[in-house]
Design a binder for these strands. Sequence first.
DNA 1: ATGGTAGCCTTGCTA
Length: 257
Amino acid sequence: MIKLATWNVNSVKARLGHLTRWLEAAKPDIVCLQELKCQADDFPALEVKALGYFAEVAGQKSYNGVAILSREKATEVVRALPGDKSDEQARYIEATIGGLRVASVYLPNGNPAPGEKFDYKLAWMNRLTSRAASLLESERVFALAGDFNVCPTDEDVFDPAAMAVDALCRPESRARFHALLNLGLTDALRALHPAGHLYTYWDYQQRRWQNGEGLRIDHIMLSPQAADRLAACAVDKRPRGEDKTSDHTPVVCELAF
DNA sequence: ATGGTAGCCTTGCTA
């Protein structure tokens, strides 16, 4: 069984204690991290190595930054999303661990919409869809896991009316998320929990966590052959309840390999 | 009432 997780940690340096505690408790095999907010050289590689994890990092000063932690060493590492060589934001890393191709993705937020940032988000999503299509063509078994900054449906939003014009919920964003589903990818959490509110993010402001007012924006998207192996998937809410924690919490799935 | 929180290491930007 492979335990695969994704977590937007909102600064890996500020959250090193949260991360190491969670790794020790949850014991995942592969972890996709987002919003490291540091350069690759500043990633706490020794600390995660001490817990038995290799780390592959695409870093950036202050903003963005993604990584893949794995018990088995990753190979064939790609540190950028294909399709725009002028894109310097560290939002994508892809690698092979065992027989599984894994990508840690940090999609642009896209607010305010409309505007340049929204245009960048939509273009980035088009590139992600192209990449997923290429991986499918190559018949790779793969997972795209990360902060997609998209609430796929109103069920994934505590206040759909208030969020309707937000870049996370706008129809252009949702259409591109659904394009991934139309390619044949499976939203792992919804595959096993089709109905009901499930959240992975609660804003720091306005007591959203305490009030249970969140969004589901962190997803694990599986290729058909990976989805055939899907045995379990859940949101691990415990880390969100800790002091000085990330505004996101991990999503974890188990694949029967 | 255009706030409120958090992390960056700028004195504002991003989320």
